[in-house]
């Protein structure tokens, strides 16, 4: 079975499996980012979340993020797994692992990946509260795309 470095999954994410995909004899650092489900957002209590995705395109865009990191740090190895479906508070929604020869680049790459996920990867979360539910968009708190798309730099850089 070929290992997929960029995946959308339904089951709980196994952190060590994501890390093992970027292990490398020339790596001096593996930086791991773990995104979890938070209970309170702006004082509002979330009961659980539902994530949905346009799966084939989301995996393609995660892979594009990996390419972007490698363009900057050619020796980097990147793996990203994002979970969809119903998640409870504290569940792991995303795991990013970046290995590089030197630690600074692995921190940068990991940070870059999570910010880019919030820009270009077609995944949505719906927060469920005691008194309602809502699809969340535009988490970067920028104005939503007035001309119907992210600007070309955002999508293609």
């Amino acid at each position: 079975m070929t290992e997929k470095n960029f995946e959308i999954v339904q089951e709980p994410i196994k952190i060590e499996e994501v890390i093992s995909k970027v292990e490398d004899r020339n790596a001096g650092a593996i930086n791991t980012f773990i995104g979890t489900v938070r209970e309170l957002t702006k004082g509002k209590k979330t009961l659980y979340l539902k994530y949905d995705a346009y799966v084939p395109m989301a995996e393609k865009k995660l892979s594009q993020i990996g390419d972007e990191i490698q363009a900057k740090y050619p020796d980097a190895k990147v793996a990203i797994t994002h979970r969809i479906g119903e998640l409870a508070i504290s569940d792991i929604a995303v795991v990013i692992a970046v290995s590089t020869p030197h630690r600074a680049d692995s921190f940068d790459g990991s940070r870059y990946a999570i910010e880019r996920i919030k820009e270009i990867v077609p995944i949505w979360k719906k927060e469920h509260w005691e008194d309602g539910e809502k699809w969340i968009g535009d988490q970067l708190e920028k104005t939503a795309y007035p001309d119907g798309k992210p600007n070309p730099e955002e999508v293609q850089k």
């Binding site: 995104g35 346009y54 084939p56 929604a93």
Partner: peptide, 26 residues
């Protein structure tokens, strides 16, 4: 067909066109 496209792009017979609200993964 799974690549972001502007309003002027033409879709043809057999193409797959998706509309993607602001994303909120992570």
């Amino acid at each position: 067909n799974e690549e972001y496209a502007e309003n002027t792009v033409l879709a043809h017979e057999g193409d797959l066109v998706a509309f993607i609200p602001p994303v909120s993964g992570g």
